[in-house]
Design a binder for these strands. Structure first.
Lengths: 133, 133
DNA sequence: TAAAAACCTAGTAAAATACTAGGTTTTAGT
DNA sequence: ACTAAAACCTAGTATTTTACTAGGTTTTTA
């Protein structure tokens, strides 16, 4: 029904906490889970993706946790949501791979692409630093 | 994963066919189902919603079918998608009813509202007449 | 009166979502 | 060296949503 899932919301909130601690301390998922009342293991799954996308790095062991790799001014909501939710494309045929209709003059494709652009611009213009203000 | 479903795509395509026959003939769901290769009964469910939302009217019986109630210039993609998919809100807390976080200063709500506005504007500016051009 | 249309409700298979269970590996402090 | 706390990993699962199907009834026109 055109909804972002909890993956987007949870990862934004968790990353906002890392942003608040940027250049100070690493933050453990246990702490984030407690503060935001999110399943810790679910957070682990999200952070695995955030790490693969080079948005965070991690320290293992006591006093370990996650750290932002870039400053909060340089991490957008689009970066985070694309990492955890997948693409921002609002319909399958927007993708160049999605050849559902691209060949014959597809009625709706242009519109979906416009919607995609709109979503992308808004989320790219929203930085972690904006969220924690 | 922020995807419109087939409900949006199917109803847009079906409505485009009605638009092409505007002021000419009623079009049966059997015909649309054949042309667009969509389940007829699934289309019935979508058209039940389109009718409830006063976008179409129907004639029963032989040579019956559906007819646009407004001209293709006056029906937007937003009208159609809101009728069949539900709201265009990209996250639950955008709704005034969604009091998930509205009370305390919610980090993400403002951003979701911007995304919503962007989607809405694009879909409102796309009319059935644009789709069939 | 028969065919073709809308109209209606309930059920269902498949996919996605949002988790949990139950580990291992690594590291810091004692 | 030991222990606790952290990341890291894989598989399973309950719930919800999606995209239908089944099996009708009612209305209208030729």
């Amino acid at each position: 029904m055109l909804k972002f899932t909890t993956k987007a919301e949870y990862s934004l909130r968790a990353m906002a906490i890392l942003a608040k601690n940027y250049k100070k301390t690493a933050v453990s998922l246990a702490k984030i889970a407690r503060e935001e009342k999110i399943s810790k293991v679910y957070l682990e799954q999200l952070f695995s993706k955030l790490k693969k996308n080079h948005l965070v790095t991690a320290n293992k062991g006591v006093n370990g946790g996650y750290i932002l790799l870039r400053s909060p001014e340089n991490v957008s909501a689009a970066d985070i949501i694309e990492a955890t939710e997948g693409s921002l494309e609002p319909f399958y045929c927007v993708s160049p791979k999605g050849n559902c209709c691209a060949k014959k003059g597809c009625l709706t494709r242009k519109m979906w692409i416009k919607v995609h652009q709109g979503i992308k611009i808004t989320l790219e213009n929203t930085k972690l630093s904006d969220l924690i203000k």
